[in-house]
Amino acid sequence: MAAICRIFVLMLGLLLVKPATSSAQTTKYKCMIQMTNYMGEGAYMVISIIDPKGKYDKTLYVLGSDKKWYPDIKEWHKAFAKKPANISAITGASVAGGDRTVSIIDIDNAKVNAGYKLRFESAVEDKKYYVNDLEIPLTTESLAAKSEGTGYIRYVRFSANN
């Protein structure tokens, strides 16, 4: 019995330690999204990393906390439904037209300048859904520039957070 307990505690310890080791290779960025002056409800948006094959690699941030509307962000929801992940730590409020929001996102250093892309996907209740409101290559350059959106997003800016 005692042996089982010990193993259990050890496994628990390993589980807790693991994220700390992996986070060593990531960089935090402040990401500011400025919205256009569209009319309607607050936009639900997802920031994801897309791998070189065009598949969802990782969800960086979800703007909008009510799960009820997640199916509206169609493509991401499809992928997300297959591969559920705990996103409560990277979820913020939805953003209304004309507003701006700053989120902090964790980007794996290995994925920068390696053919990955950053995708900003957006949906507003009873309005158009943009699978690619903004999609930029995940490069050092684009992480330093201001990028214009095509849907509800006017532009996005980043700055390394340190």
């Binding site: 913020g92 989120s103 957070n161």
Partner: peptide, 8 residues
């Protein structure tokens, strides 16, 4: 803002 660990 972000906390000491840089998290939201």
């Amino acid at each position: 803002a972000s906390d000491e660990e840089g998290k939201n």
